[in-house]
Design a protein around this nucleic acid. Sequence first.
DNA 1: AATGAATGAGGGTTCATTCAT
DNA 2: GATGAATGAACCCTCATTCAT
Lengths: 212, 212, 212, 212
Amino acid sequence: MPSQLRIERDQERTRRRREALLDAAGRMFVRHGYHRTLISDIAGEAQVGQGTFYRHFPEKRAIFEALFDRILEQLFSEFTEMNASPPADVREYHEASARAIGQVAQTLDRNRDLVRMLLREAPSVDPAMEARLAELTDGFVDIAQRFLDHAVASGFARPCRTRIVAQAIVGIGITMVDQWWRGAVPDIALQDLIRELIDFAFKGIGTPQPVA
Amino acid sequence: MPSQLRIERDQERTRRRREALLDAAGRMFVRHGYHRTLISDIAGEAQVGQGTFYRHFPEKRAIFEALFDRILEQLFSEFTEMNASPPADVREYHEASARAIGQVAQTLDRNRDLVRMLLREAPSVDPAMEARLAELTDGFVDIAQRFLDHAVASGFARPCRTRIVAQAIVGIGITMVDQWWRGAVPDIALQDLIRELIDFAFKGIGTPQPVA
Amino acid sequence: MPSQLRIERDQERTRRRREALLDAAGRMFVRHGYHRTLISDIAGEAQVGQGTFYRHFPEKRAIFEALFDRILEQLFSEFTEMNASPPADVREYHEASARAIGQVAQTLDRNRDLVRMLLREAPSVDPAMEARLAELTDGFVDIAQRFLDHAVASGFARPCRTRIVAQAIVGIGITMVDQWWRGAVPDIALQDLIRELIDFAFKGIGTPQPVA
Amino acid sequence: MPSQLRIERDQERTRRRREALLDAAGRMFVRHGYHRTLISDIAGEAQVGQGTFYRHFPEKRAIFEALFDRILEQLFSEFTEMNASPPADVREYHEASARAIGQVAQTLDRNRDLVRMLLREAPSVDPAMEARLAELTDGFVDIAQRFLDHAVASGFARPCRTRIVAQAIVGIGITMVDQWWRGAVPDIALQDLIRELIDFAFKGIGTPQPVA
DNA sequence: AATGAATGAGGGTTCATTCAT
DNA sequence: GATGAATGAACCCTCATTCAT
């Protein structure tokens, strides 16, 4: 009969295999997209047999979903604090926003190929995956909207239909991930890119001098 | 030898068949996505035999590309004038922008399901189709950037990295098409939605009153 | 009501069309083989519409068969006399044989691409076509055998199983058509080739001089 | 990790499957020809799933080629010794030839349906397969020619254009395989058939006795 | 009669999933 | 548990034949 130790070692190995498969799937999906990636590609990339894949995931879409979940977790685990003390004035609000956005941006940037892959492939996988992606977007919009609602209520931002503006802001983020990844964005430090976008979000393209 | 009339009638019928196939393909791609749409679905939807499909398009990807082209043409054919007299002051500039954006928005709205389908499916069809979509995006960015460069030069807009801001603006549009189509946008008249977005683009979320 | 003349003109035109189709089919079958030749290829080569093909031949295999027949007719129409007075001695027999074989060879040579095509493609068309080809071969063997029987009976040739020897002789002919067509035969005048083969058929490779 | 034994057993099974598929393909090609044989026929005949076919051969033409190769190997593996001591006089030469030809004939006879299938179908498969068949023929011609050159040089055979005569001899063989297989050859023991052909090859049909 | 567009029954090939070892 | 061979349901595409004009 297997010792407790043995059981744990096996479980650990299983967990690592699963991770290896997820990593492999991520790389293949990024490189070739969901539909052109074969199970045999993933297994091969993970250095396991094809049958082993099915010990860890019941079907192809399952590994996509698991990857989705893992990336989400990864993403949100990096947003922990972000809910510091509420800003007291416009300046603090501005700074807090900048910090938050900067953090999100850096996190996205660190995972940009996977995030982009998700954004690109999820809708073509399945209506269900498409819905999950939509939920995710909505989640970001919710956060942005709450932030914005608070700002408006506090007089830090002009009154507006905060849902729509929040959607627009999230839309900027989503698109920039894509553009940035494919090299369409001018060569610029991430910091400066973020600053430019925050500036735009706060000030719009509006007139340079608030005329006297 | 066939009469001139006969030839013309045949060509006309061929053209109509082709259109019918494109329409059918559009509907199926919108409904089920590129990969889950079968040639037999398209043929069935167009009420023609499966072989007929191949008389009009050499392969599946070709009808997607043709659809892509047709939508583009459709889109751009609606942007004809848009190059009216250059605005003389901020107000005129603002109005001209609003008009232009409104027009684009209405056009996109009229074709929103197809446009959304293109945005969603193109990247998963083919690296080449993905590239074409990127080109399209870049085209819109180019237009927006020129507009913006002009505005900055005229003092109607604050100086900024116009490429990036243009990308952000286009990104708002792309995302809103998606959100709007799937009903994520609050129930609002298109006019008001556009106004809200223009406001955001011009003013950002910035402080309501330039504090005294 | 159509005049007699008109009817005749039409029939003539129909006949010419049919010939043109046969010619075209021959060229295409020679070039690409039966299976890789499409009806549309034949129609295109004959400069007629695809539907026209079916006015003249009920199906693809029919034109092959018609071609087969036409070539046969062509071939045998060139063997008219060949039944001259029977040879009186070995020398005459030898000369008569040489003349006959030479004539056959020249005829085959004139039609060598079509003949080769028939030999090559017929078996893969159809069991029936294969049988017809076999009949044809048997026909040649019959002729050769009769010739040989006569020769043996007359003491011009050594006794042997004439059927088998006749088959061997015809086999030489069949193979040489193929080899000659594809350029495997050394560069040599047709006359000399024939003489060499006749020599072989009469003398074998046997010892040069029945040594004293 | 799989045991060495396991690996070997698997390889053995794979090899057997492949052989079974080749056998099945051979039977089907013999019976219905290349073009009328479906992958599903081969798989069914071999008692495996259709997909299994594609684990062993990348495409239809590949199994034909593999069959071609296997038959060739089979054929030539039976011609091993055949290069005994060179004949010293006409009699020995004659006997050596007879032995060699007899061996070839027996080998061909043992594989006659496959050989005939190759001869018949290869040209219609592919220009490349046709070329391979031509090479094969040329190979036999080469051998025959070398034999003949030697015989002429040794004074065992009359001088002649050995290439052409070799082609004729090989042609006899090729045709007889075909005729024999389809039952066109009179009922006769293989031994006697071969003797008859050798007689013909050595002596031709020529006059029975160079009359005194 | 002539045309070529339309048709749909195949048939080769792919690949997610199962299964024997 | 791991493996990779086996499987067969799809699915795209071809092309001989039919048909409307």
